[in-house]
Design a protein around this nucleic acid. Structure first.
Lengths: 356, 356
DNA sequence: AGGCTTAACGTTAGCGCTAACATCACCTGC
DNA sequence: GCAGGTGATGTTAGCGCTAACGTTAAGCCT
């Protein structure tokens, strides 16, 4: 009988071993091999050993594509992101990947060329066509948030860092709270009010930060200056900083990210306005370089790693509830933290003089 | 006959349409649908139209996992990388993704927790088990380069940014040339010699930069000071910078990356040594913030995007030659570029005085 | 007219795996 | 001693797709 079987066996010389090869060598069916691989309890220990030995001898490697075809799950998640070069998205992506690895998932990335509705839905489409089990979208702009709701995909999705107010779960840092933390810190140092350099107008994070800044000023009864609009780059921070540096009444600036704060620092330095002697500056993000700016930057730390891993957990739960028909999970907010360093100081009398 | 067929058709209500559903609606076999999808010439135009219409009506979406199973190609490539948060790897990853998208591939990432041999081969293993068609490894350390050679995987691989001298193709920036560019620039400004802050000892890039620096000094007949070893962080640049700032004979420093240069700038500033008045500084990488340092940093630009897209092209060719049995492609070097800004200046007489 | 090509399909047989059921030996309780 | 579990396996039938081959009708040559 064994001879007969061996005669029947197709010639697979060269090609990698498959499950039935392992089974044949171990003297069991391919299904028992599958049971061993998937940890079924209904396999006798000695059979398991024989199968394991056969797998080892043949250098057998399970084919996850075949498995995905039959189970309908690829153990792969998609991440849609815009500029993965920026510190924020890059760290978030990193956090997601780490959490995904732990949860047994792979991460496939789709970065966007442009930030319009079309590219977002095109990316979501591409990913779901490729067979991902779920999608994380690192959203930072209103258009993409809208695009997410408009997408017809049935794949579970979670928005990260920003997103529509309803429809899909959102995991993000509490931007408004962070901005208010920064603004209150400056007010408490005695500054009459706080100027603000924002991110791009359509950035969701930027808008939230503006709101947090405004509400903190109003709560304190401080005047609300006109906000200056930047584009996250050090370059824009520099040019807006030059503008602000001309106005001696400006003694405190809350800048919507650390890169722009770096540009502002440089502009102030060029104009001979001391930081924090004449002007106090607070950034946002706490990039690794922030403590080494001149002077070391007071800023609001966002825990991107936490955002990444938390959003992954939410997505995995969304996938499970999608399969079981349970109610999908809600989103969550990560608390930011103020890092006080050397770019902020109590308002000086010199500045007070020009003011009163 | 049509009635019979309809009766035979399984109840797929709810489940997404598959190829045979489309075929049935269009009155053709599933194979003809496949032909339409894959652009076969042997389909009559009116048949093609009917199939397309049926696809549209049913909202048919091809299942790429089933296709991957039968073709043996997943159109997916793996990227192994260490710290995706750093500007270099992040930009390279970004460039790879863009090029992959254009070439019709997806990118799946595997970031490493640690930089030892085991994690590199574990990552390569994980990816090839998942069925990727090829792997790009962003290598930056000797151990990983060795690990690459030791891996038993039969999946085509390309090393990016560094790698073993032979065995697999390597695509990288010409670090040695970049370092020599930086060093020669400083020597040409009249500095007697150039000090050097390196990256971590086991970093391949760092080693190459040290070699370029050394050979430029020797060629010019300049003395070769002892190099100081950093770890890429602004923090380490700061502490090593404090050391250098105490020595008045130090008038020119080549720092192996921009972050450490930032730390050094800060240390010099604290000690009251003017840059570039007393000390000239050159960095490496040209991160987006470099022009906005105080002072704007002279540095060596690496075109990470080019490295990413070029390495992808090499990998795709490696995959094709793997399939056809042709000779695998070789690697290539990307030329760096010196960006002269305001952190370097001709040696001042004040510094000369202490020297002679 | 008979043979030959070719276009335009249909049919069949897998890819490598898991799910679902079938089988069989062995044990249990009364 | 026999119905009725239960544990360990084998068998069968797909998952949705493409490759390879089969079939038919039309066109062309000699």
């Amino acid at each position: 009988m064994d001879v007969e079987r061996a005669a029947k066996a197709p010639d697979r010389s060269g090609r990698p071993a498959v499950m039935s090869d392992v089974g044949r060598l171990a003297g069991v069916s391919h299904q028992t091999v599958s049971r061993v691989i998937n940890g079924s309890r209904h396999v006798r220990p000695d059979t398991r050993e024989r199968v394991l030995a056969a797998m080892h001898e043949l250098g057998y490697r399970p084919n996850s594509i075949a498995r995905a075809l039959v189970t309908g799950r690829s153990q792969t998640l998609g991440v849609v992101s815009f500029d993965t070069t920026l510190y924020g998205p890059a760290s978030t992506l990193f956090g997601i990947e780490r959490a995904a690895h732990e949860a047994g998932y792979f991460i496939i990335i789709a970065s966007l060329k442009a930030l319009d509705r079309a590219s977002v839905s095109e990316a979501v489409d591409r990913l779901s066509l490729h067979g991902v089990d779920g999608i994380l979208v690192i959203v930072s702009e209103q258009g993409s948030a809208d695009a997410l709701l408009a997408t017809s995909s049935t794949v579970p999705m979670v928005a990260v860092e920003g997103g529509p107010d309803q429809g899909i779960p959102v995991v993000a840092v509490d931007q408004r709270h962070g901005a208010s933390l920064a603004t209150r810190h400056l007010l408490e140092l005695g500054h009459r009010t706080v100027w603000h350099i924002t991110g791009p107008a359509n950035s969701l994070e930027s808008r939230e930060r503006v709101r947090g800044w405004e509400s903190a000023l109003r709560t304190a009864g401080a005047p609300v200056p006109v906000a200056l609009t930047g584009d996250w780059s050090a370059r824009s921070g520099y040019f807006l900083g030059r503008q602000l540096s001309r106005d001696p009444s400006v003694t405190a600036v809350f800048v919507a990210n650390d890169q722009m704060a770096l540009g502002l620092l440089r502009a102030m330095h060029e104009r001979g306005r001391a930081v924090p002697g004449d002007v106090s500056v607070v950034g946002f993000d706490d990039i690794p370089e922030a403590p080494f700016f001149t002077p070391p930057l007071t800023t609001v730390r966002q825990d991107f790693g936490e955002v990444g891993s938390r959003s992954l957990r939410v997505l995995v739960r969304a996938i499970e509830s999608h399969l079981s028909g349970a109610t999908p999970p809600g989103g969550s907010l990560v608390a930011p933290e103020l890092m006080v360093r050397a770019s902020t100081a109590p308002v000086s009398h010199r500045s007070d003089a020009t003011d009163s």
